[in-house]
Design a protein around this nucleic acid. Structure first.
Lengths: 316, 316
DNA sequence: AGTTTATTCGCATAGTTATTCTAGTGACAA
DNA sequence: TTGTCACTAGAATAACTATGCGAATAAACT
């Protein structure tokens, strides 16, 4: 509620005029108004808030509609968001830009209510971080993938799910397991537990999913020491070109048979395909093969990407 | 002419949006755009300059039209500018505010060409300081009053005249004399010199004058050690209520006979009355008697004042 | 090509602005 | 009156932004 505003519009207009129009510094304005610079700073903020000062920026179209359209029609996506990035932006900067401008897209694409599965990944993290808090939804967020290692980082599904419900409200169902375990037996043991079974259940009913699409190169798994270069090479040999939630798939989008498959605790590719809305997030041209495969296999319904990736995907 | 702008509008829009709309800091924007913070600062400046960013402030009416009208009709002024000031603003702050918002009024009221006599004073200094440079006029500026003491300050007519032609162009005729000399003889000696006579000549033909109106209290002459309190008392006894260019006048606006009169080198009250446009500048309610008298005597054609003074003048 | 001139860049840092923190003020209840 | 709360102001200072400067690069000229 608008509490008693102690400053008159007149005063605000005077201060704002001196500052913005006449170009004086706050210190100088302060002298004329006979108050502290501190207060001028606050007056100016109030003036902006109250609409006495308007700052408008020519519409910046952060998304490349042409590429979005091409992606949708070419790969049968429901929707796509292609975020323009600075020329030299790669890696981190690209992910951040995609996160920043892509967040509204994700917010609009995810349902207001229902079950949402959330995977991990750097790109996804950048998006979730920037979802506007305040908006309230009745979501059931499900962790779609165990934790990558015991040292939980901000890009793990666990953290992202937590962050999501913190922003939008709702409940968060955690998967209190690692993403990779030593063998099938252990995996089955985990899956047999009541808690996991319950979460698994809900995951099958998910109305939507938000996942990152990983490639084999520059894999976050190597970075975090979960997989070795040799492991990657082996996966590549078995046809893998990409990964979602730790599930590796081949160029057709079919999950690869590999010694990892049965040791992974995360949403299965076949499950994912059945979720009505799956938003894949990725940035960087080097993800093209992975994303291409995921789209071919129908794993994704929507895509959030940067221009470089979009161009690479369409380049054939 | 718009030189080759090295930045694309697109880039500017992106940076400006991130900064102004999304509220990121320059450092954060810099990360996304992959350039230094320095450059973002420059990009934002360029965006403002190029009109990609607009900052507008609700019209602030710096002048009190009602009081201006009342002053004009009551005292027969040609025009008046009454500048609103902050409640607690007195003394210096009031003068500065009057100078700031009054400068456009003075610029509009003074002719584009012709001879302008300029007096000294703190209020006048604040005005002159803020006249927009760039505009070019063909003025002959005449120093209307000698220098108050050998230690020339920024409020002396000498400095103000200099500043005026520096801003607007034109020539400046200096009165290379003190404002007050020891006796009539010395005064006459100065006045007899060719240079002074020449300047005096032009002064008589002045098309306009810009002068401060001083009171007896808080007189700048005391401050600068030219007059003593005793001197002021004596002047008061001889009926003086105010002063313009060192010429003291009584409540009717008639120049006082005093021992100072013949020792003063500055435009004479009778001359001033004949100048078609005389702008008097004053700030502070305590100047009311002086300004009132000046107006009564027809010394001023226009007035630039603050609200406090205007109210005091109209209060009767 | 080899200079010269003009520009652009980012670092270091000066300068400006926002925020934290403490003290002061007034309203109101006891 | 006195205490408590709710709030506002400004001083100190942290945070942020703008600018002088030399290095690097590009453009123009000899």
């Amino acid at each position: 509620m608008p509490k008693t505003d102690p400053y008159s519009d007149e005063l605000l207009r005077m201060a704002a005029t001196l500052y913005h129009v006449d170009g004086l510094g706050q210190q100088e304005v302060a002298k004329l108004v006979r108050v502290s610079q501190t207060k001028i700073s606050r007056l100016l903020a109030a003036a902006l808030e109250r609409g006495i000062v308007h700052i408008t920026v020519d519409q910046y179209q952060a998304r490349n509609a042409r590429l979005e359209h091409d992606l949708c029609s070419r790969f049968g996506l429901e929707t796509a968001a292609v975020i323009k990035t600075a020329k030299q932006a790669g890696g981190d900067a690209a992910r951040q830009t995609v996160g920043h401008f892509g967040a509204p897209f994700v917010a609009a694409t995810l349902p207001k209510t229902g079950v949402v599965a959330v995977g991990g990944g750097r790109s996804v993290a950048e998006v979730v971080q920037r979802l506007r808090t305040g908006e309230s939804r009745r979501l059931t967020v499900v962790q779609a993938m165990g934790s990558i290692d015991s040292n939980i980082s901000a890009v793990d599904a666990l953290e992202l799910g937590r962050a999501l419900v913190k922003r939008w409200g709702g409940e968060f169902l955690t998967l209190s397991t690692p993403a990779f375990v030593s063998d099938k037996k252990t995996r089955d043991f985990f899956l047999a537990s009541d808690q996991i079974k319950f979460v698994w259940q809900r995951m099958r009913q998910a109305d939507a999913a938000l996942v990152g699409v990983g490639g084999l190169a520059s894999s976050v798994y190597i970075e975090r020491g979960v997989l070795s270069h040799a492991d990657i090479a082996q996966l590549r040999d078995s046809g893998a070109v990409g990964e979602i939630c730790g599930r590796f798939f081949d160029a057709a989008g079919k999950e690869c048979k590999s010694r990892w498959r049965d040791r992974t605790i995360s949403i299965e590719i076949e499950h994912l395909k059945k979720i009505p809305q799956v938003i894949g997030v990725a940035a960087g041209a080097d993800r093209a093969p992975a994303v291409m495969a995921a789209m071919r296999g129908g794993l994704l319904k929507s895509l959030l990407a940067d221009e470089a990736l979009a161009v690479a995907l369409l380049a054939n």
